[in-house]
Computed example of a mutant assay.
Amino acid sequence: MQIFSTFESTSYLEMAISTLEKEGIKKESIFAVPLDNRTEKRRVFDSLHRSDGISLIDIGAALATAFSVIGASVGFKLKWGPIYWGLIGAGTGLVLGIAIRLFIELVVKRKRRLLNRKHSEIILIIDCEESQAEFIENVLWDHFALGVAKVQQI
């Protein structure tokens, strides 16, 4: 049986490995693989082949609707009339909404991503007998593994 787990690069990983070695798991049965984290910044704009599910025009569409209604209503009293002022209001709302969404994505969420710096940095693979699997899984969870999976070998 193989047990896979992911850890951050901390002393808890080293303590988990030493605990497993003290309990009789051979050094040759433990394999740790460090991962390379993404070095390039995330893109804000989607491409044809990649989408992150975040829409930049959702707030813009709502504000365009609201501003066009207000512009058309006020436009009855203004010189250019309700159609032009409705279009001006829609354009203004769309631009304002896109600016708000870009600010949220580039400034607010970037700070949140920098604070949450939890990455799976190391994959730990352990070959063991099926009778040892439950103990090893408990040791890994006790030492703050980010994820654990068991694979039965055929």
Score class of each variant (00 low, 15 high):
Leu124Met: 08
Leu124Ile: 06
Lys109His: 11
His119Ala: 09
Leu114His: 07
Phe103Ala: 13
Arg101Cys: 06
Glu105Asn: 08
Arg117Asp: 14
His119Val: 05
Arg101Pro: 01
Arg113His: 10
Leu102Trp: 00
Val108Ala: 10
Leu124Val: 08
Leu106Asn: 10
Glu134Cys: 04
Lys109Arg: 14
Leu96Arg: 00
Ile125Val: 12
Ser120Phe: 05
Leu102Arg: 00
Gln132Tyr: 10
Ala133Asp: 06
Ile104Trp: 03
Ile126Arg: 00
Ser120Val: 02
Ile123Pro: 01
Glu129Trp: 07
His119Ser: 09
Lys118Arg: 10
Lys118Trp: 05
Arg117Gln: 14
His119Thr: 08
Ser120His: 06
Glu130Asp: 15
Arg101Met: 14
Leu106Ala: 07
Ala133Phe: 03
Leu96Val: 14
Ser131Pro: 04
Ser131Ala: 14
Val107Tyr: 13
Asp127Arg: 12
Arg101Ala: 12
Val95Pro: 01
Ala99Glu: 02
Phe135Tyr: 14
Leu106Cys: 10
Glu134Ser: 13
Arg112His: 12
Arg110Gly: 01
Ser131Glu: 15
Glu134His: 11
Ile123His: 02
Arg101Gln: 14
Leu124Ala: 04
Lys118Cys: 10
Phe135Glu: 07
Glu129Leu: 09
Asn116His: 12
Arg110Gln: 08
Ser131Gly: 11
Arg113Gly: 08
Glu134Thr: 13
Gly97Leu: 01
Lys109Trp: 10
Ile100Leu: 03
Arg113Asn: 14
Cys128Tyr: 00
Asp127Thr: 10
Ser120Lys: 03
Ile136Met: 09
Phe103Cys: 12
Glu105Leu: 08
Ile100Met: 01
Leu106Pro: 01
Ile123Asp: 01
Glu121Leu: 03
Val108His: 07
Leu114Pro: 03
Ile125Leu: 06
Cys128Asp: 00
Arg112Leu: 15
Lys111Gly: 15
